[in-house]
């Protein structure tokens, strides 16, 4: 490492500290809220640090008693998992061939810009046509329907990300496989996709997060426990006459757990994906 003056060191560490505070503060506050008692949260002046730890809300939300808030919340978690998982798998299925095709055929790269252009449209402008379309197909308030809508968001995003990933894999390797006698599907399965694994993992994770965090379409296209996702469920917690901020915070913590777990599992692949030009675009 190069030599650095004391002032510069203090500045660098100070900046890092500020940065981590900015990132972590809301998360920490969310967690503290979820374990504070209602009295602490409504006290004036506010008790930043809870006087007693109250874990009852976790029990309330993770409950299988029928017609309870817990049952509704768990159902929404399950819906979110299915919708996001389905949409992510679908997006990868669509994006892998199209990203590969665009990466290997510079002549048709303009088409990708077309796709990205549709991505620029604000979601609200598509809400009505999508609603009518889903209604026509009888897919309103279904997991499949919402997953289909998310697919339209995830597929362009995934294609773009994967294309930059495929770009980094030398074409000569595929030429070599072709001369060696591999069919296109064999080349993809044995050579290209294993090499693209880190980018695939990164793309899958980001696509999943995008679907998991989506709120607007989920609010419009779902009505009850059969399809309502966790973002909408959390909003519902705030909908009553008396809002229990602690309960909302608990919902937030629980909703964050699945993506965090998936992220941890795929951590190594994702990090190498991020560093090998996976997200250049």
């Amino acid at each position: 490492m190069e030599r650095r003056s004391l002032a510069a060191s203090i500045f660098v560490y100070g900046a890092a500290l500020v940065m981590s505070l900015v990132i972590l503060a809301p998360v920490v506050w969310l967690f503290l809220m979820s374990i504070s008692s209602s009295a602490d949260l409504s006290a004036r002046p506010l008790h930043w640090w809870p006087q007693e730890i109250d874990l009852s809300r976790y029990g309330e939300l993770v409950s299988l008693v029928s017609n309870s808030a817990g049952e509704a919340f768990l159902a929404s978690l399950r819906n979110s998992l299915f919708v996001s998982g389905l949409a992510t798998c679908g997006a990868l299925l669509v994006a892998i061939p199209s990203a590969w095709a665009v990466s290997r055929t510079p002549r048709v790269q303009w088409s990708l810009y077309g796709v990205i252009a549709t991505y620029m449209l604000p979601p609200v402008s598509l809400a009505v046509p999508l609603y009518m379309g889903l209604a026509h197909l009888g897919l309103l308030n279904t997991i499949t329907g919402l997953a289909l809508v998310y697919l339209t968001i995830l597929a362009p995003f995934a294609t773009w990300l994967l294309k930059t990933g495929f770009d980094t894999i030398p074409q000569e390797i595929e030429s070599a496989a072709m001369i060696d006698g591999a069919r296109l599907d064999q080349t993809m399965r044995l050579v290209t996709l294993p090499l693209a694994a880190p980018v695939l993992a990164t793309t899958a994770l980001f696509a999943f997060l995008l679907a998991w965090d989506e709120f607007f379409y989920a609010l419009l296209f779902t009505a009850d426990q059969r399809a309502k996702t966790v973002t909408v469920a959390i909003a519902d917690l705030a909908g009553g006459r008396v809002s229990d901020y602690g309960l909302i915070a608990t919902g937030g913590i629980l909703a964050a757990l699945p993506p965090v777990l998936i992220g941890l599992i795929m951590q190594r692949a994702v990090i190498s994906g991020l560093t090998t030009g996976g997200v250049k675009g």
């Binding site: 030398p170 390797i173 030429s175 070599a176 072709m178 001369i179 050579v191 090499l195």
Partner: peptide, 20 residues
């Protein structure tokens, strides 16, 4: 098709399959 030409090619970048 290249695979039916009975040729073999050695590339400048070697083009080995890194995962195998």
């Amino acid at each position: 098709h290249p695979k039916n030409r009975d040729i073999a090619m050695v590339f400048q970048s070697y083009a080995l399959y890194p995962n195998l």
